[in-house]
């Protein structure tokens, strides 16, 4: 069993060449008045290291403010790191400079939490797929529209919905469109940032299964960022746990859920509400005792 500390590579399991490698990544947010001379940099991600293998789903979990989304945004180059390196398929992403190579934009895609805001309300949803295809020089206009229909088919959406506006679709359908957009470019890594958190339970399970199916058929890797440990157990092979911007545990899912000794992870696991009312008084008493004990973190 492997637990913290994890500043060095502590990737459990076999030694596949990783697709994405994050080393000692630190990110700061600037706080203080925008135009003031005296600005302070607040660290939100502190020397985090992990890797994602080809065809793998890595769960990145943590509570709000743990820096999990910031890590995803840094990999997507929406935020600049302060130090550390990100390597994708042998190329150093952090050394790209101002412009990002198109090939990286093709290989790494994202599905965000709120499908209502991640689709342009003024465009029909097909544009969300054909726009990037055009930028990447894929085919003629007609071929791109066919590719959009194909992507819709893959995510289980009726092609009749291609010409609808996002407002006309349900939350689950919008999230399927967002996934269709992400996979249309045939990426190798998709960052799913709370991608199913805003969905209802019955829709959520549909989308989670869809992601698993896509992974099986295309071999894409997922970095699944979420606060929901129950979901992580279902879909990821390995889990990285963050607390206050630091990686506290990085382990195989089964191992982590069964035998972790890491106090913070244990606290997280203990807080998951069970779906069976049996034994809840006991659980409550245990939590109460735990809270009275001196704070472990």
């Amino acid at each position: 069993m492997k637990t913290a500390p994890l500043t060095e590579s502590a990737a459990p399991g076999t030694d596949d060449a990783p697709l994405l490698e994050v080393r000692d990544l630190s990110v700061c947010y600037r706080t203080g008045r925008a135009a003031s001379w005296r600005r302070t940099d607040t660290p939100v991600v502190d020397r985090v290291s992990f890797d994602v293998r080809p065809g793998e789903t890595l769960g990145l979990v943590g509570e709000s403010g743990s820096g999990k989304s910031t890590i995803g945004r840094t990999i997507l180059r929406l935020v600049d790191p302060v130090s550390g390196t990100i390597t994708f398929d042998g190329r150093e992403v952090t050394a790209f400079g101002r412009s990002t190579p198109l090939s990286y934009r093709r290989d790494v895609q994202a599905v965000f939490q709120d499908p209502a805001s991640s689709l342009n309300p003024r465009h029909i949803v097909r544009d969300a797929i054909t726009g990037p295809l055009r930028r990447h020089g894929r085919g003629s206009r007609k071929e791109r529209e066919e590719a959009a229909a194909e992507a819709f088919h893959m995510v289980g959406l009726n092609p009749a919905l291609l010409t609808r506006y996002p407002m006309e679709l349900s939350g689950g359908q919008r999230q399927r469109v967002a996934i269709a957009r992400a996979i249309a470019l045939k990426p190798r890594l998709v960052i799913c940032d709370e991608a199913v958190s805003a969905l209802d339970v019955s829709t959520q399970s549909q989308i989670v299964n869809l992601l698993a199916d896509l992974q099986e058929s295309t071999g894409v890797s997922f970095l699944f960022i979420t606060h929901d440990l129950r979901l992580v157990r279902h879909i990821s092979q390995r889990v990285a746990v963050l607390q206050h911007g630091r990686l506290v545990e990085f382990a195989d899912t089964e191992q982590l859920f069964r035998t972790t000794r890491q106090p913070y992870t244990r606290r997280l696991l203990a807080a998951i509400p069970a779906t069976d009312p049996e034994g809840r008084e006991h659980r409550r008493a245990r939590r109460a005792a735990h809270r009275k004990a001196p704070n472990t973190t």
């Binding site: 895609q109 991640s118 003024r122 957009r181």
Partner: peptide, 28 residues
Amino acid sequence: ERQYVESAQVAGLRTPEILFRHVLPNLT
């Protein structure tokens, strides 16, 4: 700050295209 702008960036779209094709229609 809306995610559709970030999504366009992630897809690699150029700044003028993001500005005029994506942001501008939402300002109408």
